[in-house]
Design a protein around this nucleic acid. Sequence first.
DNA 1: AGCGATCTTGATGGGATCTTGATGCGCGAG
DNA 2: CTCGCGCATCAAGATCCCATCAAGATCGCT
Lengths: 233, 233
Amino acid sequence: MTDVKDSVLVVEDEPQLRRFIRAALDANGYRVLEASRASEVVALITSHNPALVLLDLGLPDGDGIDLTRALREWTTVPIVVLSARGREEDKVAALDAGADDYLTKPFGMNELLARMRVALRHRPSADEPTVERAYTFGDLVIDIVRREVRLGEDELHLTPIEYKLLLLLARNAGRVLTHQQILKDVWGPAYATRTHYVRVHMAELRKKIERDPARPKLIVTEPGVGYRLRDAR
Amino acid sequence: MTDVKDSVLVVEDEPQLRRFIRAALDANGYRVLEASRASEVVALITSHNPALVLLDLGLPDGDGIDLTRALREWTTVPIVVLSARGREEDKVAALDAGADDYLTKPFGMNELLARMRVALRHRPSADEPTVERAYTFGDLVIDIVRREVRLGEDELHLTPIEYKLLLLLARNAGRVLTHQQILKDVWGPAYATRTHYVRVHMAELRKKIERDPARPKLIVTEPGVGYRLRDAR
DNA sequence: AGCGATCTTGATGGGATCTTGATGCGCGAG
DNA sequence: CTCGCGCATCAAGATCCCATCAAGATCGCT
């Protein structure tokens, strides 16, 4: 239960309540960002990209509902509103402005945490970094989602190290990677001197992905420097 | 405000409240389905595919929280819980079981409508509420709604862990799942180190679903990484 | 309380993978 | 021409990872 979870931006001007919330979130493994004014919120979201925003409506320098509406112009980050106002119109206004939930003070911390979990699980698919799903080099295809490598029709079986190596090369296709960089990325910073590892495993990798391993077309050696994956384009 | 919106399944045993809700939803352009017992819910969702479920927790024939958890096995349709119980533990339990919102009776109809709008706009894609009722891999069929697994003609009996394992693999068919991911999903985040559990139970599962458990065709091991359910691409 | 089913945990052996050292080749510098 | 350096290849041993078995603990039901 000690793993680091997502970061949460707490926007609350009352210092006591802010401390209280921070303590509870800390205890539950969230990283906490704090803001006490509406004017700070945009900058903090863009710079830290929190997974969720807890927004007090009663801020001194601006209306929280307007802020919510403004945020919704450009971000889908979940917004859970905390408010002393419990009137139904206030709730409807905040929710329709784009808030994902609305809690009336005083609220129980367990309920807040549960509602935060709801808001967080709502968006795992929403805007995942959606990076590259697959790389293609000639008839070599690296499907990252499936962790699968194919050469033309047949599927290749790569060992963990070989796969890591290939992925590193693919992500930096065209660029030369030094032995140091490769060692650091695949084996970890402590192995920076074991140049030999790279050679042995690069040879294994070539045996599998090169048509003619003796005359590599894909993985080219840059003597004295490192290796490079040729991107044919 | 007269266009036909999505349909909403109202699960509520009190006739008066049901009529009241129906009237409000009608007036707001929703199509309304009604149920008064937990046992009808699964059939109505599968047959009518509503866009949202309003679920009263105090049903005569079954616990609404268990029902929520069961539904979450196979559908992501938004569930908004209505309950006379306002204790914090009740809310937390329902939300963690998979409900998307929780309103304590008596509630204002405008708030309910606003929270329904929130739940509806959360839906991943406007159309299908992502219902996957059964998975098929070769002659292995996993019927999620009935929680039943068949291999060709004969039904298999899977233990809870085996079933969870298989479902996890099926939902991620083709993708490699790391031991970590499996442990987190099946046993919970605290068990991330118990790699051995996965091996033992994966072996049991293979004994049951593989024609030749020694030469697995369906569940393939990715050494050093995890397991993968092969999907016939 | 008792029973059967299921889960946890340890032990073991085999196989895949990695590490490590030895060897040979090619190329450029001296 | 020869030496030295970096690279490729090979192979053996060490290590890691996986499958399997089995015993004890626990769970769930009657």
